[in-house]
Structure formats: structure tokens, C-alpha cells
Design a protein around this nucleic acid. Structure first.
Lengths: 193, 193
DNA sequence: CGAATCTCTTGATCAAAATCAATGCTTTTT
DNA sequence: AAAAAGCATTGATTTTGATCAAGAGATTCG
């Protein structure tokens, strides 16, 4: 049930048995079915979810009803509305299961407790968030500097496994364009090869 | 010399005198004049810089020579090419002083040492990077979902002090549009009020 | 001080991407 | 198995923002 989680954890920060049980005792497991919501805009985000199995997305909805995907999370990734989680303010993101998924959940109180009680938990958290930060910088650069073709190809190269598991219009949303435009971009790429 | 740095540090994570001297002994001060580079694309990023005084920007240059600003850093912020810093790969960003600046610098070896020797340094690092991560998510959302007007107004509201210290074309670059377009956006905003 | 460089604005034109609309295919659901 | 919903593509049109070009202040630098 916690295999993927601790496998990742130990890869970044090796744990003793005792540390592992302490952490495990503060976690909870949750199963969620496709199209169900883990979080909806306006609610307070009470947990950080780590994906054991499955695939989720977080997204915002703009004033015209358009969806904009902020993040995909597959096995080994975490997903949350961190701002809401840390501040207790209402969430700006929706989080929805794209596939039936199994999650390892941590509440705010458990999170705070583990951060103070367990130095390795803090280290793991820092490492994860640092990697996520670097990935977001790359994404901003892609949004600002790349052509549509480059944005699409960078995504496909960087996340081939996600590309195979989500519909194309979600890829379009993630890289910031409409489904129609992505379809034409793909056609352009296909013909110029 | 380290006033701003430790003021921020203590605000997030209170330090004892001993901890403070340990950390201070691993830091270095650097002054840099306007228009000078702290880092150039292709070089290895050897340090994380914390801004004591002044203002810097990091940016990429695209294939047409266009500049895209990834980050501004003013007093109390850090700036670096974290990917290059952590991996030793060549930097993708340029970092340039927009004003004469005073920096508190930490090298990779000192960073690694402090992370292992000083739990509070790790905590401070985690808190800083978490805040930076949340800010980047907001920026991506702004790039994907907002109109140009909203992007500009969000920037002005969020960073009024930066807005007063950098030329407009840098704001344009940061929010992902051309100087000409920003000029017209400002005009639209002015006339509709 | 005077020349050069920056900075911002405005106008005209062009190119790119969004939007609107329709169709054929799959996949789900009942 | 039929109906419904979801998905990708294509075409026509419109809108948006980039580009090209010029000029008028500021500011900086020698």
C-alpha cells in the first residue's frame, strides 16, 4: 500500500525501520475513482496526496469556463493546492482523478508534526519541492519562449508516459493552447518529417 | 553586511547565536554593479545569491535573440540557476544586476554542508523554495488563463516596488509580451477608467 | 555640454492562434 | 445493441498580439 511512496522516499533519503514506521503511522491511504474530485475550487485543501497508482490532474477554470491544467501527477508524484494547504485559504485549483487512483495522504497536522519530529521528512520535502520548482521554471520558459511545436514536442519528450494516458485535449490545456490548435500543430509536425 | 539575510532567516526560523555564526562563516559577500553579470548562460552556476540590497534579473535568450525574464530578485529574495547549481550542468539562465547590488553568496559545498549540519538551514531552505514554488504556479496560471490586462495588473499589484524600479519593457518581458503591446495595454486600462 | 543610448509611444501591417461550426470515430453508458 | 457522450480533425472566419517603422522625450556617458 505504501510501496511506491517509501521506494521514492528511500531513493532520495534512506530511512531506518523506526523512521519508516513513524512516518507510516501518520499517513493514510485513499482510493479514488476516475472523474472523482480530490479537491474543488473554494474548498480548503486539507491534504497533500502522493500518487501510488493512477493519474490525477489539477486545473483552474477561467471566467469563460475554460479549463487550464496546472499539473498532472502520476505514480511517484505529489499533488495538492499547496497554497491552500499551508495557509488554510480556499483552494484555487480543482484536483480530479483522470484514472482510478490510489493515494497516500498526509494531513496538515501530520505534515507539521513530521517536519519537526523527523529531519529526514524535512529533507525529503525539500528535495521534492526543489525538483518541482525547477520543473515549473522550465514550464514558464516554455510558455514564454517556445513555439507551439517546441512546447508540444518538449512535453511529449519529457512526459511520454503521461502523453499516452491522457486525451490530447488535456495535453493542449497543459501546454496552453486549444485542442484545435494542437491538432493542427501535430499535423504540421507530421508533414514536415 | 548580513543584516537583511539574517533578519529574514530569523523571521522564518529563529536562530541561536551559535547557529548564526556557523551559517555566517559559510557565507560570502559580493558587490555587483549595474549591468554586470552574476551568471551567463552556458557557465556552471556555482552559487545561490541572496539579495541584501539592489535588484537583479534572470532571463533566457531565445533563438531570435529575444529576452525572457524568468525572475526578478529584490532585497530578501534569492536568485540562482538552481538546476545548474544542483546538477553542475551548464546554466540556461543569465543573471544580471539591474541596480548596483549587494549579495550574500553561498557555494555548493557550503550549501551541502549547512543542509546536513544545521537542521534550521534545511528548514529555511524548504520554506523559501516552497514559497517560490507557489509563486511560480500563480505565474503559470496567469500566463495560461489571464488576459493581458489581468496579467499586467496582477503584476503591478503583486510587485509594486519592482514595478517602480525596472523599465517597462522588463515588465513586458516578465509577463510574456512585447513592449509595444504592453504600452497599448496600459493605454486601454487608462482610458477605461 | 553634446552625442549617444534608452525608453516609451503610436501607427500600419502581418501572422498566428482562437473561435465557431460541422463531421466521423470511439468509447461509455444504459 | 442502441443511444449518448467524448474525442480528434478540418474548414472558414475573426481576433489578438507580434512585427516593422518612426519619432519624441529622458537619461547616461564621454
Amino acid at each position: 500500500m505504501y510501496e511506491v511512496y517509501f521506494e521514492h522516499f528511500n531513493k532520495k533519503v534512506p530511512l531506518t525501520e523506526a523512521e519508516q514506521s513513524l512516518i507510516k503511522s501518520r499517513l493514510a491511504v485513499k482510493k479514488i475513482r476516475k472523474k472523482q474530485y480530490l479537491l474543488q475550487e473554494g474548498d480548503i485543501c486539507k491534504t497533500i496526496a502522493f500518487v501510488e497508482k493512477g493519474l490525477l490532474r489539477s486545473y483552474t477554470v477561467d471566467e469563460n469556463g475554460g479549463e487550464h491544467i496546472m499539473q498532472f501527477a502520476v505514480e511517484g508524484w505529489f499533488i495538492s493546492d499547496l497554497y491552500s494547504f499551508l495557509t488554510g485559504e480556499p483552494a484555487t485549483y480543482n484536483i480530479e482523478a483522470v484514472e482510478d487512483s490510489e493515494l497516500v495522504m498526509i494531513s496538515k497536522s501530520a505534515y507539521d508534526e513530521l517536519l519537526t519530529k523527523c529531519a529526514k521528512y524535512e529533507k525529503f520535502s525539500r528535495i521534492l519541492i526543489t525538483g518541482a520548482y525547477i520543473a515549473l521554471q522550465k514550464r514558464i520558459n516554455s510558455l514564454m519562449s517556445f513555439t507551439l511545436e517546441e512546447r508540444y514536442e518538449t512535453f511529449m519528450k519529457q512526459y511520454p508516459e503521461i502523453a499516452q494516458r491522457v486525451p490530447q485535449h488535456m495535453i493542449a490545456s497543459y501546454i496552453g493552447l486549444t485542442p484545435e490548435t494542437l491538432s493542427r500543430v501535430r499535423k504540421r509536425i507530421a508533414t514536415n518529417k
